Amino acid sequence: MIVYFSATGNSKYAAERIADALGDRAVSIEEKCYDITLKEDECLGIVTPTHWWALPIPVRAFLRNLKLHRRGSHYIFVASTYGTTPGCSAEETRHILREKGIRLSAAYNIKMPDNWTVTFDLSDPEKVAKQNEKAEVNIDRTIAMILHKKKGNFTRLRTPYAIYPLTDRVFAKVRSTKNLTVDDNCNGCGLCAKKCPVNAIKMRDGKPVWVRDRCALCFRCLHHCPQFAIQFRKGATKKHGQYTNPNVKV
């Protein structure tokens, strides 16, 4: 089984490509597939974005709730999609699984367009298309290694796990929902509330309201909003556009 979390489609697409090559299936962790049984020679793949050099909040929760039943030999890997660095996402995965008595066989990373549009400009379709063309090569390379069941940490540009406590504290502050705003372009469709992976948004009087102090800050709401009405920090994201992976049906 290949499990994944995806806000804008990158990790979903990578997971589906990997699953297809393995003759397996890709399942979103939002389906709460915590109870997994691996038979002889079966694989468990975890495909995840990188958020602030580490795992996304929903992926952490999934791994901590995971109940893995195994028979015989098996191959467990993580593949982190990223824009600038996969950070310590692979090492964090290894630590969480080790606490549960599960050994990670391999770690990979796949460079794709970065949806953190506070910094990265995704408003140029041609530039984004080139990034996705390069991502295909990265996915193909990763699939080839997975098919051969390579073992080890094959991530590039990773950061030391020792910095994780610091970056996580900073991320906790940045994840404040006070940083997210909705403007007058909102048409009250409710898609953001329906699709929020941590149920941080509710509709009140036809407008989205953040009902939790912190969210996953995955930017799913921002990038999927049909009116581009949701912004971060008073419109810091406005000029950099919206993004969803072109190979994934929204």
Rank of each mutant, 00 (worst) to 15 (best):
R220H: 09
D114E: 11
L180H: 12
G23L: 03
V250Q: 15
G188I: 11
V47W: 01
K234P: 11
A193S: 12
G152Q: 08
A15H: 03
E31I: 04
A106P: 01
L180F: 15
E16L: 00
A144V: 06
G87A: 09
D183Y: 05
T81V: 12
N179A: 11
D213V: 11
C218W: 08
I96G: 00
P197D: 02
I163F: 09
P56V: 02
T84M: 11
V170N: 08
D184A: 14
C215S: 13
D121C: 08
C189P: 08
G9K: 02
Y75M: 00
L157R: 13
G101N: 05
R17I: 01
H240V: 00
T237C: 06
F77C: 03
C218V: 10
R156L: 12
A90H: 05
A79E: 01
A61S: 15
K239G: 09
E30N: 13
A7Y: 07
Y164E: 10
E126M: 10
N247F: 15
K207R: 15
A129W: 05
N179Q: 11
D114A: 08
C221G: 07
V174F: 09
V170P: 01
N179G: 13
D121G: 08
A129H: 12
G72Y: 02
N65L: 13
A21P: 02
F232R: 04
T142R: 03
Y34F: 15
A229F: 04
I230E: 00
G23P: 04
Q231M: 10
E30G: 13
E92A: 08
L157T: 10
K149M: 10
E16G: 00
Y4I: 01
V209E: 14
S73G: 11
H51W: 09
E40Y: 10
N132A: 02
F77M: 04
L68Y: 06
A90D: 03
K195V: 15
V182S: 03
A14R: 00
Q131I: 11
R94T: 09
D114C: 12
K111T: 09
V78H: 00
F219R: 00
C218N: 05
D183N: 14
Y108G: 00
E16A: 02
S80M: 00
R60I: 11
A7W: 05
S11W: 02
I143K: 05
N109E: 04
T159K: 14
F120P: 04
N109Y: 03
L44A: 02
Y161H: 06
D41F: 12
W116V: 08
D183P: 05
